[in-house]
């Protein structure tokens, strides 16, 4: 499989993402109280970096991601892409969701085409889709419907759809969480291939410690100080190892033990 991906001429460079004192509260189920989930999250993702957000479930990881995409808003603080504050669905971002979310009545190719930027000429779009399908290894399944391909293939199609947007920021919300272990490793390798060919900014939410360590330039760890309190940044870990990284590397294993302890798992 060749992994040469030519960026179209219209493509723009990777963008920086800044979280500035971001907090999120939800109305509580009863009474006028609000339930604070996230407090005072401040960090910056530099252009072209891969950054993972790690944390226990329900700590607001996805909220951060959705705030970047403009699918949700922060209650406190602001999210900036380069220098502009995100206020609505942002065309500079593309989201890969936890589930593939493909339109079941469209072929794989036409699902990927959905991600093309608005106003892409038909011929250029077709070429780009073919190229992306080649990249994710789905060329032979371009005309299949989502129900006719496996979960891993559907997730690859979802990734291709996100890439079709030429995103300056690629947002991935536990993209490989529902896949089996083997497929997950393949998808992680694929993501690194894609990033090497097209080094856009990648912000990824995961609960898989190893995945975060193998892929990321920085791992942002969210944690709660009390059982019911809001989560905030506990630590930012930066594994300074060249990619691809071995999962058995001694630094990776040491960091894994450290992270698990941080997340409250005894080793």
């Amino acid at each position: 499989m060749s992994h040469i991906l030519t960026r179209p001429e219209s493509a723009v460079d990777a963008a920086a993402v800044t979280f500035d004192r971001v907090g999120k509260s939800f109305p509580a189920h009863h009474g006028a109280h609000v339930h604070e989930v996230l407090r005072d999250v401040t960090f910056t993702v530099r252009p072209g970096e891969i950054v993972s957000v790690l944390g226990p479930s329900g700590c607001g990881k996805s909220t951060l991601l959705r705030a970047v995409a403009g699918l949700g808003t922060a209650s406190e603080g602001e999210v900036r892409i380069d220098d502009s504050v995100v206020r609505e669905i942002d065309p500079r971002c593309a989201v890969g969701f936890q589930e593939p979310r493909l339109l079941p009545w469209r072929s794989v190719a036409r699902n990927v085409a959905l991600g093309l930027p608005h106003g892409t000429p038909a011929r250029e779009g077709k070429q780009r889709v073919a190229q992306l399908l080649e990249l994710v290894g789905l060329s032979h399944h371009a005309n299949h419907r989502p129900a006719e391909i496996s979960g891993g293939m559907a997730q690859r199609a979802s990734l291709a759809r996100a890439l079709a947007r030429n995103p300056r920021v690629l947002l991935l919300d536990e993209p490989f969480g529902a896949l089996d272990a083997l497929t997950r490793i393949r998808m992680q390798d694929l993501l690194l291939d894609v990033h090497r060919a097209d080094p856009t900014t990648v912000l990824m939410v995961t609960h898989d410690v190893e995945e975060a360590l193998v892929l990321s330039d920085h791992v942002v760890v969210l944690a709660r100080e009390t059982a019911t309190g809001p989560a905030t940044i506990a630590e930012i870990i930066s594994p300074e190892l060249a990619r691809p990284r071995s999962r058995e590397d001694s630094e990776i294993t040491a960091l894994r033990a450290h992270l698990l302890a941080l997340l409250g798992v005894e080793r």
């Binding site: 995409a69 699918l71 669905i89 065309p91 971002c93 593309a94 989201v95 969701f97 589930e99 979310r101 339109l103 959905l114 991600g115 930027p117 608005h118 759809r161 947007r165």
Partner: peptide
């Protein structure tokens, strides 16, 4: 709703 949200995230 997931499908609608995904489509919205792609600018539809």
């Amino acid at each position: 709703r997931h499908l609608i949200e995904a489509a919205r995230s792609f600018g539809l």
